[in-house]
Every structure is written in C-alpha cells, then in structure tokens.
C-alpha cells in the first residue's frame, strides 16, 4: 500500500506527511510536481506549505503542475486524495472541491492546537473515527478561512459533506466553522488543520491525526 506525497516548489509539510503515512503502516512515496507519473501509488496527499510562495493566490499556480493532471483524472476514478492546508487550497483551485480559502479574518498567521469535530466518518480518510469524534490537532495557516456561497454551503451541509468543523472559537473566520469538506464520492478530502503533525506524542499535541492515514489504508484495501 503506497501513499504518494507531492512536493511542489514551496511545499513544507511534505516530509511530515510522508512520516505520518509511514507511521500508519503505508509505504510513503515522494512525488514531484513536474512528473505526471504517480509511480503506482494508491492514494495521494497534497501537503501543506506555501507552494509558489502563495503568489497570485494560495494554490493557484500549483494546480497547473503536470502531476495535478494525473491526480485530477485519478480522483475522478475514485483514488483517495487528501489536501492539507495548502493542499486543500490546491484542491479548491483545481475544482475537485467547491469553495475557496481566503486570508484569516484576523489577518495574522495562526499556529495553535485546535479542537475539531469529525462530522463525516464515511470518507476514505475518516472511517477510523467515530461519528462526531472530537479531536485536537494542529492548525497553522495564513489563508485558512473557508468561504463559499450560501447555496454551496447548504448543499455541503445537506449532503453531509462537511468532514470536520472547528469547536470552541472559530479561529479564522471560516463560514459555518468549516475545517474540512469532501467531494460527493467521499474520496477527495480537503482539510485546513494538520493531521500529519499529530501522529507522535513526542512532537505533536496528540496522536489524533493518525486516523486519517489509517483510514485510507482500509479504504484502499477495501476497494
């Protein structure tokens, strides 16, 4: 079972995502943005960072990378794809997920341990969590505020596609406290907080993030 992690110019959490995949028991494969070949991976993580310096708009340039063409095609065929932070931004720019991510409402970079509720445990990346499981994982971003029009938000809520919601204080102004969403099929998930930083008690605030990576192992085996 191989999980690929894409490195774009300016990706920062790629090594962390590979470590998390390995801790979960997968073989982590480094993928390069300029190489359209996915090298036989079963699932893909688009990691956090500031790809292309967030210039123009976060994720706006990376979505044109050769590797993204293949990922978009494979995602359409059901391959699990997780976009974390900047990866979430890339997924929105690629139209694999609806909505957009804009600057935090308090106009500052924020790094904190953030409580979340997993509201959809039927996706490829969340099946190891209980329904309405409350977890605390790292949140760190500059452009983390999820926005969409009312109709889209209603549709996401109605179809149960809000994967995770912020608990306590909304940290960045995201509409309806949304921290993560999924596509209709449940194989593509975008998440603003960082589960890959929460797989070891030694270096993270919890191990609550590991479930994303163990979930996808089961999803791949099952498919």
């Amino acid at each position: 079972m191989k999980i690929g992690v894409v490195t774009f110019p300016g990706s920062l959490d790629d090594a962390d995502a590979r470590r998390a995949a390995a801790v979960a028991g997968a073989e982590a494969v480094a993928l390069w943005h300029g190489d359209a070949d996915l090298h036989g991976v079963d699932a893909v993580v688009l990691p956090g960072g500031f790809s292309y310096g967030d210039y123009l708009r976060a994720g706006a340039i990376s979505r044109f990378a050769p590797v993204m063409e293949t990922i978009i095609a494979k995602a359409g065929q059901g391959m699990p794809v997780l976009g974390i932070c900047n990866g979430f931004q890339v997924l929105c720019e690629s139209h694999l997920l609806p909505g957009a991510l804009i600057k935090n409402d308090r106009r500052k970079f924020i790094c904190k341990d953030q409580p979340l509720r997993i509201e959809n445990n039927r996706t490829a990346w969340t099946s190891d969590y209980d329904a309405n499981h409350e977890i605390t994982i790292v949140l760190k971003n500059q452009d983390g505020s999820f926005v969409a029009d009312e109709a889209t938000l209603d549709r996401l809520e109605g179809e149960g596609r809000v994967v995770a919601r912020y608990l306590d204080e909304n940290p960045n102004g995201s509409y309806r406290d949304i921290a993560g969403i999924t596509n209709e099929r449940g194989n593509v998930v975008g998440l603003m907080p960082h589960p890959e930083h929460c797989v070891e008690t030694l270096t993270g605030p919890s191990t609550d993030g590991l479930g994303f990576f163990t979930s996808v192992l089961k999803a791949v085996v099952a498919s």
Partner: peptide, 24 residues
C-alpha cells in the same frame, strides 16, 4: 509565538514557552 509555526518538520520536541527549544 502563535504567529510562528512550531510544528513543521515534525521534530520539535520542545518549543516556547519551555525553558529551551529541543529538536530531534
């Protein structure tokens, strides 16, 4: 300090406000 990323690279064993920062 909440405006600084203290987690990236996944080797931060201790960071502020601890007595010293520690990296694995």
């Amino acid at each position: 300090t909440d405006q600084y990323d203290r987690y990236v690279l996944g080797n931060s064993v201790l960071s502020q406000p601890e007595d010293s920062g520690m990296i694995r």
